[in-house]
């Protein structure tokens, strides 16, 4: 499914394809015309992808085919051993995690998991965790601390699940506890926002020493649709809300909410997932290298100071 703003690009690509096909079947020389159109296509792509609005980026962040946590774990890591369950109630398929190697380095990993098709999306609740998902994440934080291995998290959720069962089992309480548990890690912690960073459900596994974000991912206190529904009383005003919320990677870097931006291939990570995952891997290795010399206590203090400093007010 092409995104609305990409339609001019796809139309031009289709015309080029048709011309090539005509040239091949009829033997007519259309070389010059094709080259002209290809130049125009390159220009058009630069124009569109170089000037993405916040709302267009939100759409890219949700695009089917964008790398999910499991895609990253399968391709950038070695020997990922998935661990299941919260030891209290259930296993939440909306959060995955376990043990892995990153270029031979032992790490503990956790991430939100969206489905890669409709069926899987239903099973994974569209990446919206229940309390047991966060309890599983905390279990894995315990493991990371116990063995002294770096803790890596991948964020990609519209938000924690807003439902009756989630409330009954203390959604707010586990999110608070997960924030606290992650803040207290004595190992290097790095978070990567892959797609959607929806509010407390994202932050619960985002209290890292360094927070990295993919170029077209978003991170905010509320989704643009919900924000629009409340402030404009109309979810259709989401593009305006996306603008107002300053939820893009560049804005977040300016407010120091994130520490670095991971570049995506032109047109978004779903256009070339392999390339995107390679970029993620390189960014993770570089960041872990930066944190390498710090003692357990220094890692805790570093994380404490990072979050303590966030906010803008007048004294």
């Amino acid at each position: 499914m092409p995104l609305e703003f990409e339609k001019p690009i796809l139309e031009l690509e289709k015309r080029i394809q048709e011309l090539k096909e005509t040239a091949r079947t009829t033997g007519v020389d259309l070389e010059a015309e094709i080259r002209l159109l290809e130049e125009r296509l390159a220009r058009l792509k630069r124009e569109i992808y170089g000037n993405l609005t916040p709302w267009q980026r939100v759409q890219l962040a949700r695009a089917p085919g964008r790398p999910t946590t499991l895609d990253v774990l399968e391709k950038a890591f070695q020997d990922f051993l998935e661990l299941h369950g919260d030891r209290a109630f259930a296993d939440d398929p909306a959060i995955v995690g376990g043990l892995a190697y990153l270029e031979g380095q032992k790490v503990v990993v956790v991430g939100h998991q969206k489905g890669r098709d409709t069926k899987e999306n239903l099973q994974r609740n569209f990446g919206m965790p229940h309390p047991e998902g966060y309890r599983k994440a905390m279990r894995l934080m315990d493991l990371a601390d116990r063995f002294g291995y770096p803790f890596l998290s991948f964020i990609d959720t519209p938000g924690a699940y807003p439902g009756v069962s989630a409330e009954e089992r203390g959604q707010a309480w586990v999110i608070a506890q997960s924030i606290q548990r992650m803040g207290r890690l004595r190992v290097p912690a790095v978070a990567v926002i892959l797609g959607e960073g929806g509010s407390g459900g994202a932050l619960a596994i985002g209290v890292a020493n360094r927070v990295l974000i993919l170029e077209n991912a978003w991170y905010s206190v509320i989704s643009p649709e919900s924000c629009a529904a409340i402030l404009w009383r109309d979810a259709k005003e989401a593009p305006k809300a996306a603008e107002a919320l300053k939820l893009t990677a560049q804005d977040l870097l300016r407010f120091k909410v994130v520490d670095a931006i991971i570049p995506e291939p032109e047109g978004g990570a779903h256009k070339d997932p392999e390339r995107a995952i390679q970029n993620i891997k390189e960014a993770l290795l570089k960041t872990l290298e930066e944190l390498k010399g710090l003692s357990p206590e220094a890692l805790y203090q570093d994380r404490y100071r990072r979050f303590r400093a966030l906010g803008v007010y007048q004294d």
Binding site: A176, I179, Q180, G183, S199, G200, L203, G206, V207, Y219, S220, V221, I222, L245, K246, L247, D251, L252, F255, V257, R303, Y304, F307, R308, L310, G311, V312
Partner: peptide, 13 residues
């Protein structure tokens, strides 16, 4: 927006 969200981590820590 995101700055409000960060207050959750700040206060908890």
């Amino acid at each position: 927006a995101a700055l409000s969200l960060m207050q959750m981590a700040k206060t908890v820590m």
